[in-house]
């Protein structure tokens, strides 16, 4: 319990840091962010609306601490400003749209990568010294060296364009309406396949190596030897004694991996024009839509923190040593 509370406090701290970064970074840019904002929206927004937005970002005519308070106020009200790229939509609306698809894509990809990678790593540790064990790790490392988006482009080109087996853009077919129908679900899955594949291919190597090394280390622990000495069946020894301990470090790394995948999936989404946060970020950068950029950063960060927190809870459930 104490452990969980400490972690929660940590996440609160990290959240505060990211809020503050969000506040500070625009002020690092050369020039005055307030007037830049003014320039962008002048003529397109009512003066009151423009003023409100400035307050939300803290661009008020006051010393820094007051600006900060103004900014926090805006956050509490849920005011992240108005998007340039999707004018006149509010940033919060724009992000909400993309959130689902990013969660879908990244979440599913991470789960597949973790499960597949851990299983494969376990097999390799088991068949230590075999041909597979000699070839797969370097191969997977090589695969992991490719930048996410490059692999995405490759897959897109080969399977999407050349072979025309799978769709090349968007999250679902343009002709369908979103809804819980078989056709829609099927379409969503087929559209998510290639992007997910590119993420899985580049990230699975890390899981394989992690599980492999952990399991090899666990197999040489005394309690595994004792389990064998007790005459337990190989299955029992492997799953009850070896695997349960070996998976723990992977669980710890899971949270971190979520952060990485979220970063990587941004670029993948861009390649596939997949309407998630990454795609939105791309648009924001292209259009110099700073409000959207900041909003996305904040949102993604908070999502990662939340996910990490959930992983911590799971970790405590799995490892009795943490329950105190």
């Amino acid at each position: 319990m104490i452990h969980l509370l400490r972690r929660f406090a940590f996440y609160l701290l990290a959240a505060w840091v990211s809020l503050s970064l969000n506040f500070l970074i625009p002020r690092l840019a050369p020039g005055d962010p307030a007037s830049a904002l003014q320039l962008r929206f002048q003529g397109r927004l009512e003066p009151e609306a423009l003023q409100a937005m400035k307050r939300a970002f803290g661009y008020v005519d006051a010393p820094l601490p007051e600006q900060y308070l103004s900014y926090l106020g805006g956050l509490c009200r849920g005011d992240l400003g108005i998007s340039v790229s999707y004018f006149p939509a509010r940033v919060t609306e724009v992000i909400a749209d993309g959130l689902f698809w990013t969660l879908f894509l990244s979440g599913v990809s991470v789960l597949i990568s973790f499960t597949l990678g851990s299983l494969l790593g376990a097999v390799l540790a088991f068949r230590r010294g075999s041909v597979a064990d000699a070839l797969l790790p370097p191969l997977l490392t090589f695969l992991g060296a490719f930048p996410y988006f490059w692999l995405a482009m490759l897959l897109l080109y080969v399977f999407g364009f050349s072979l025309d087996w799978l769709p090349v853009r968007h999250a679902y077919s343009d002709e369908l309406e979103p809804g819980v129908s078989a056709a829609f679900v099927a379409s969503a899955l087929s559209h998510a396949f290639l992007p997910s594949l590119s993420i899985v291919l580049t990230s699975v190597g890390a899981w394989v190596l992690s599980m492999r090394n952990n399991l090899m280390a666990t197999l040489s622990e005394d309690y595994v030897l004792l389990a064998v000495a007790k005459g337990l069946s190989p299955a029992k020894v492997l799953f009850r004694y070896a695997a349960r301990s070996a998976i723990l470090p992977s669980v710890t790394g899971f949270g971190m991996a979520l952060g990485f995948v979220l970063s990587g999936s941004l670029l993948t989404e861009i390649v596939f024009s997949y309407p998630g946060q990454g795609f939105l970020l791309y648009q924001a950068v292209k259009n110099q839509d700073y409000a959207l950029m900041q909003g996305l950063f904040l949102f993604i960060t908070l999502a990662v923190l939340l996910a990490n927190w959930l992983v911590d809870v799971a970790h405590v459930l799995l490892d009795p040593r943490l329950r105190r």
């Binding site: 990290a14 840091v17 990211s18 970074i25 690092l28 110099q288 700073y290 993604i300 990662v304 923190l305």
Partner: peptide
């Protein structure tokens, strides 16, 4: 460790994008 932890948990690419967008 606290400082390291915070930097570690903030997602790298979004932060990098934000920084790079605002700076020269």
């Amino acid at each position: 460790s606290l400082i390291v932890g915070v930097f570690l948990i903030l997602p790298g690419l979004p932060l990098a994008v934000l920084l790079a967008a605002f700076l020269e």
